[in-house]
Amino acid sequence: MILGVARGLVGGIAFFPDIKAPPIKAEPVFGIGSLVITNSMLGAMLAFLITILLVSVLTRKLVERPGKLQTAVEYAVGGLYNFAKGAGGSSGASLFPLFAGLFIWLLVNNWIALIPGFGQILVRGPDGEFPLFRAANADFNNTLALALMVFFLIHISGVRTHGIAYFAEFINIPALLKGRVIDFVVGIFHTIGEFAKIISLSFRLFANIYGGEILIAVIVGLAGPIAVVFYGLEVLIVAVIQSLIFGLLALIYISLVSESEEHPGDHNESVPSVQPRLATDSTAPQARPAS
């Protein structure tokens, strides 16, 4: 019997329907003058509308004694706020709107793209049919735009905190004038590292979402119902973690450059709170292996 089941499974797997992975380029749907609207832009707009609708509905009737819905929303937003405050140090609270905005919009974007049927609305174009909507983050243009926005925000907030001296971190003219060539070279490496931030931020989100779409398409083609497992993985882990990571990295990058020297960070504050715990733990010193 087991053999029969196995043979059935193999038979099922050996049946290859043509795997329809989305093309790497978003298809243009229509154009207004020279502005071309692609299907991923339509997807982004849809996510935008849903986010605005969600926020306006959820915050319409705020009362002093919250009901169930308001409590849930307050719990979620409060959790995000505490997360941002914990990650961003002294400027975490002021960067919360950016973090939460990025997170919620990206999450809505990733989730609506995973609703079955989202990519199945086909329209007829000049070269064949193509889907009307496409996950915005499965288009590199969208993630690149977001990464560029974060990049400029990092450096604008750096200049706002440190003034023109901020650029000495990258093109270290003062060190060169004093003859410290190594510091100057380190500054050049810093500059390259800054541009690597654009690449890593944009490619991480793009490749995760696009790779997820291909993964689901391939697994559906290979094994049919087993794709549900990967679907759950995409919905619960990849979509949430990648949205969170994009917002979190933007938050951390900006908070790193906007920390001024007057109060040297909250890192020193957290040390005394850790120390007593270490002391209480040392009642069982043999439990701690030498590392």
Binding site: F83, G86, R204, A207, G211, I241, I245
Partner: peptide, 30 residues
């Protein structure tokens, strides 16, 4: 165990930076 939340956050960041390398490889293969 009382540092779980802090450690988890750092862990997620570390995992993401490791994962980035695989993502570059994925982009190349795509």
């Amino acid at each position: 165990p009382e540092l779980k939340n802090d450690l988890q956050q750092v862990m997620i960041l570390g995992i993401v930076f490791c994962e980035t390398v695989a993502i570059y490889a994925l982009v190349v293969s795509l």
